[in-house]
């Protein structure tokens, strides 16, 4: 579950883009696959969409493991 997306710098366009793509608080996310070299990039599923994110991009997204509910 996404907690929030942090800006890596002030007015970070990548963080803004991530938020626009739906990485907002409360959305469940899942790592579906990782790239063949060094596990980079990551394939992230959010809703019914899958995005390839490099680790540095994904690092902006803070997640919390879902509490059993």
């Amino acid at each position: 579950m996404v907690d929030r997306v942090d800006d890596a710098q002030t007015a970070d366009p990548i963080a803004q883009r991530l938020r626009d793509l739906g990485f907002v608080q409360g959305e469940p996310v899942r790592v579906v696959a990782t790239g063949p070299l060094g596990g980079d990039p990551l394939l992230i599923q959010i809703g019914s969409t899958r995005f390839a994110l490099r680790r540095s991009e994904a690092a902006r997204v803070l997640v919390s493991t879902e509490a059993a509910a």
Binding site: A8, I14, R17, L18, L21, P41, L43, T49, R50, F51, A52, L53, R54, S56, E57
Partner: peptide
Amino acid sequence: SEHALLMEL
């Protein structure tokens, strides 16, 4: 600056 991959599959 960092340029994102951010690619939809």
